[in-house]
Design a protein around this nucleic acid. Sequence first.
DNA 1: GTGGCCATGTAATGTGTTACATGATTTG
DNA 2: CAAATCATGTAACACATTACATGGCCAC
Lengths: 179, 179
Amino acid sequence: MTSQDVILGILMNQSSAGYDIKRLLETVFSYFYNASFGTIYPMLAKMEQQGLITKESIIQEGKPNKHVYTITEEGRRQFREYLNSELQPEEIKSDFMVRLYFGGLADREHVSEWLSKAIDKTTRTLQSLEDIYGRLKDKKSATQIICVRLGIESCKARLKVLNEGLNDIKALDGELEKE
Amino acid sequence: MTSQDVILGILMNQSSAGYDIKRLLETVFSYFYNASFGTIYPMLAKMEQQGLITKESIIQEGKPNKHVYTITEEGRRQFREYLNSELQPEEIKSDFMVRLYFGGLADREHVSEWLSKAIDKTTRTLQSLEDIYGRLKDKKSATQIICVRLGIESCKARLKVLNEGLNDIKALDGELEKE
DNA sequence: GTGGCCATGTAATGTGTTACATGATTTG
DNA sequence: CAAATCATGTAACACATTACATGGCCAC
């Protein structure tokens, strides 16, 4: 899976401009995918050249002009090819988990701070996923519901362990202060 | 966090060769980090040049020779600097979740296959994390236990939703066959 | 005798991020 | 009046993967 496949998938459902694609990625996709403008805009230009999408310039008042891209038949074919291709393993790069693993080498203050930040972030992610779930529960496809539920349940499980972990670390701090 | 930080962290605990580092990453780290030989070997060479680590050649019989690297004081300083640096957000790239999101555009057979594969993989990951947990529960630091428990509970939550999801999809298939 | 494990390394390639450049409009 | 939002795009850079090259030993 590359950014091209993701963009094609989005355009399968509705024609969009690069800016809109970024917005969508930031909201719904942020839990499992991300791409910057520096990826999206050059990729859209490349895809247009290859005939996977067509560009339409929309002149807006009070706002910059938009380039709305629409998927072509060739683009649809390419997307179907992606769906038929081999499923790729998940790629994760978690600074937080790496630090936790090496946590024995860090001060307890640092560890507490990392845990607190992870709790904050996970809480916010959970909130946003639950919002999405509430809004889309009856409208969206079965697989999108599974997708959002996966995020929600993962966040909940994560929060449980994170909170217990933070308590454990703080308990260790308490013991030390007594001595 | 770059591969350099991870390698330094590993070498903080024990001197290792590139091959051993890869092995370790594949087992314990695989849930939240990964690096290929093409990253590890050039990085070790670069780090030696910069004086962060020292190389010792071990001549082995019946096996190829090994280059065992040991962290220097400068390397330790550099690693502490990493622990003091700003926590970086998690990076995830999940082909599986992307496909699920676009699942409405795919055949139900494909979706079932993806879910089954995800269930298999998660089950195996859970198994390996529980093995690690069993072995290290009493030996390792509090933060490493949190780290492994995060993986275990995430996998369990994931499995629950995946199994429910697969049943839902199969139920839809059943309905269709009746018609 | 084929394939897998041990063990290191290089080069080509792919892919993506960050920072910069531009500029009008709206919101606090 | 500063900052965010809308909107597009480029160029330099960082970083990593894949495939290749080498080669002995061991198990099936």
